[in-house]
């Protein structure tokens, strides 16, 4: 960013948004750029193999396990529905319906 004072407020905010866009894209592209430059050994291979499930579990953990028993039960309902039917929209609806039904009961 050059001299911020020289820019009009709109130009400054649009330039900031550009900077945010570059920062976001850098994060999206960096993983592929790294992986195209290295050939991982067995340890890094195991590390990378575990990443997808670990990310999904991490996204889910706080809202599933640390926000209340209604959310925990609804997560179980979602998981069982997904396991049984393998249908994503169905599992999503089951989870939302379960949380709606259980929150008034379990708080």
């Amino acid at each position: 960013m050059m001299d911020a004072a020289a820019l009009s407020p709109l130009a400054l905010s649009l330039a900031t948004i550009c900077g945010m866009a570059v920062a976001t894209y850098a994060s999206r592209a960096a993983g592929l750029m790294l992986m195209s430059r290295i050939s991982p050994g067995p340890r890094l291979t195991r590390f990378m193999q575990a990443i997808p499930a670990a990310i999904l579990a991490s996204i889910v953990a706080p809202s599933a396990l640390a926000s209340g028993s209604a959310e925990a039960m609804a997560t179980l309902v979602t998981a069982l529905t997904a396991w049984r039917f393998g249908n994503l929209p169905l599992a999503m609806c089951a989870g939302v319906a379960a949380v709606l039904a259980l929150r008034p009961l379990l708080g």
Binding site: P52, A53, L56, A57, I59, V60, S63, A64, E71, A74, T75, T78, A79, T81, A82, W83, G86, L88, A91, M92, A94, G95, V96, A97, V99, L100, R103
Partner: peptide, 19 residues
């Protein structure tokens, strides 16, 4: 209020089960 905050938890749970 409509349980929509839970939609994302549900989606990612289902995808984890799918793995």
């Amino acid at each position: 209020r409509y349980g929509l905050d839970f939609a994302f938890t549900a989606v990612f749970t289902a995808l984890l089960v799918g793995l």
